[in-house]
């Protein structure tokens, strides 16, 4: 079947009109979204009643540490006459026979620090006194030791631990140069770069040994240990 030039011309003219009509429709639809040159998205179209929706999600987490056991009291007592010193310790059921009337925590843990939040914490600690300033007398001893609930770096990652602080399970006598509350350390010294919050791996036990010399002046003594938690960056 032969197609005449006239038929072809009509088809082409129709095609032109269809193409122009389609282009105009597309053009108008796009211009309806926004003006020329400042097109920033459908929701900013000044001539449209367009709107947009956004999704906002806030995740709240708790960074919280707590001394579950916050009082390590040795009671009151004295050093038996004739003895040079008396040693008291948390974690011991038997009291040094050179001591009299003291009531150490015994088998009860000393201070028990837990990460009770749901965030890893950067843990710093501080205290107020060291051996000479707490007890006085000749060659006093005020030592501490900390034990993570789970060994290694699971409970407490010590990668950035302050060099003055002892390693886990290491008994360290507190002196003017190494105690956590050493002057100049406003928020103490870093113990854990990451303090775990996972159950069964989120606690640190702090125990103490006191070596009280005979000539320590009678007094009621108290030291406060502070723990600070910052978010792990």
């Amino acid at each position: 079947m032969a197609v005449s030039n006239k038929t072809l011309s009509i088809i082409l003219v129709a095609t032109m009109f269809i193409a122009l009509f389609g282009a105009m429709i597309a053009w108008n639809r796009i211009n309806g979204i926004s003006d020329w040159g400042t097109l920033t998205g459908a929701w900013n179209g000044p001539s449209d009643n367009s709107t947009y929706g956004s999704v906002n999600l806030s995740i709240t987490s708790q960074l919280q540490i707590n001394f579950t056991l916050d009082n390590s009291s040795f009671g009151s007592g004295y050093i038996n006459p004739g003895q040079a010193a008396c040693v008291l310790s948390t974690g011991l059921t038997a009291v040094d026979t050179r001591c009299n009337s003291f009531n150490p925590p015994g088998s009860v843990k000393g201070l028990y620090l837990e990460n009770i939040g749901n965030e890893y914490a950067n843990l710093s600690i501080a205290n107020m006194y060291y051996s000479a300033t707490l007890l006085g007398g000749l060659n006093p001893g005020y030592a501490w030791k900390w034990t993570p609930e789970t060994a290694g770096n699971v409970t407490c990652n010590t990668t950035t631990k302050d060099v003055d602080l002892p390693s886990p399970e290491e008994l360290q006598n507190l002196t003017v140069t190494n105690y956590p509350g050493e002057i100049g350390t406003a928020v103490g010294k870093t113990l854990c770069s990451i303090f775990n919050y996972t159950a069964t791996s989120n606690a640190i036990n702090i125990t103490f040994v006191l070596d009280i010399p005979q000539n320590a002046p009678p007094a009621t003594l108290s030291d406060i240990w502070f723990a600070y938690a910052d978010a792990v960056v």
Partner: peptide, 30 residues
């Protein structure tokens, strides 16, 4: 030009107060 900001996720960490524990004893005269 259209870069819609569709999702905004904010993580809020609520920090608790520092914790404290005490060590105490009373030394009496022998």
């Amino acid at each position: 030009n259209s870069q819609p900001k569709v999702v905004s996720i904010t993580k809020i960490i609520e920090e608790g107060a520092p914790a404290g524990g005490a060590v105490g004893l009373t030394i009496l005269q022998s």
